[in-house]
């Protein structure tokens, strides 16, 4: 009994710094947002604490619903593209990388070394009306007029896929790296061609990485506001921009909070659904 108590004190000692940090800087602001979302914003940005669900009802305005829907669609497509580009690359690095493995992984991570803002601006330079992409196309005689590349949903997605690809590749690499290649031999021994071996053994066993990568890409891209701001212009507004506007420009913290809570709940639901669909029964025992 005493020993147990000793353990629980030690455990508490180990956990308290993190608990303190998360409590002050994560739980408290989150609670505040939750409280604000039921409040009412005054004309000068002050908030009256009430229990008023009207902020949530405003979210169902078709204008806002369209923005939320677009955000989720763009985030979903970004995740899909990141997966389609990232899986082959992670597979290649893991199984064919040999002594270049570390160097290749480093190259995946290098873009992280500069700030997201700088990298997003680089895309503005590339995709702009008089940017590198347009000038190259015209120089090669493929187009005669500058194409409208920037300020489109495609531009936003291009920027997001570029920014979040490492978040997909790294968990995929981590889970493929753990793969026991003797299982490949076992599958081939039992008559599975390379194709079957991949789809019946390698891929199912890499699902934890697929799930982790998808979540790591989907969550930040659904809430992204810098990239759509720079590459999407006024025509590709995402939920992140909307929330930012409510807090910084419109000074309607109550509605902004309600939007943030809604986005959070929607994403939680989407992720639970996703894990239920792809994961659980297959993940057991992996």
């Amino acid at each position: 009994m005493d020993e147990r108590k000793g353990w629980s004190w030690r455990l508490a000692g180990l956990l308290s710094p993190a608990a303190f940090w998360l409590g002050i800087f994560f739980m408290l602001p989150l609670m505040l947002i939750l409280v604000y979302s039921f409040g009412r914003s005054g004309v000068y940005g002050d908030i009256t604490i009430t229990f008023d669900p009207s902020n949530y009802l405003r979210v169902f305005d078709p204008l806002y619903l369209e923005i939320i829907g677009r955000s989720l669609a763009i985030a979903g497509l970004t995740t899909l593209f990141c997966f389609a580009l990232g899986y082959p690359l992670a597979y290649f690095i893991t199984f064919k990388g040999g002594r270049w493995k570390l160097a290749l992984l480093l190259m995946v991570m290098i873009p992280f070394w500069t700030s997201l803002l700088v990298r997003a601006y680089a895309w503005v330079v590339i995709l702009g009306g008089n940017g590198i992409a347009n000038r190259s196309l015209q120089f090669l005689g493929i187009t005669s007029e500058p194409l409208n590349l920037i300020f489109t949903p495609q531009a936003v997605m291009m920027g997001m896929v570029y920014s979040y690809l490492p978040f997909m590749i790294l968990p995929l690499y981590a889970s493929l790296e753990k793969f026991d290649s003797r299982l490949k031999e076992a599958a081939q021994d039992l008559g599975a061609s390379r194709w079957h071996t991949f789809w019946k053994v390698t891929f199912p066993l890499s699902l934890p990485g697929v799930i982790a990568g998808s979540i790591l890409v989907f969550i930040p891209s659904a809430g992204e506001f810098v990239i759509p701001d720079l590459l999407g212009g006024s025509r590709t507004v995402m939920t992140g921009n909307l929330i930012q506007q409510q807090f910084l420009n419109a000074r309607d913290w109550a509605f902004g909070s309600a939007l943030a809570v809604m986005l959070g709940v929607l994403m939680l639901g989407a992720i639970l659904l996703y894990i239920r669909k792809v994961g659980t029964d297959k993940l057991e025992g992996v």
């Binding site: 299982l183 031999e185 076992a186 081939q188 021994d189 008559g191 061609s193 066993l205």
Partner: peptide
């Protein structure tokens, strides 16, 4: 002839059972 076309099967030292 690749392993998957040979009329033999193997019991591996580590068993190599499919964990999923």
């Amino acid at each position: 002839v690749p392993p998957y076309r040979r009329p033999v099967n193997t019991v591996f030292q580590s068993y190599a059972l499919f964990p999923h």
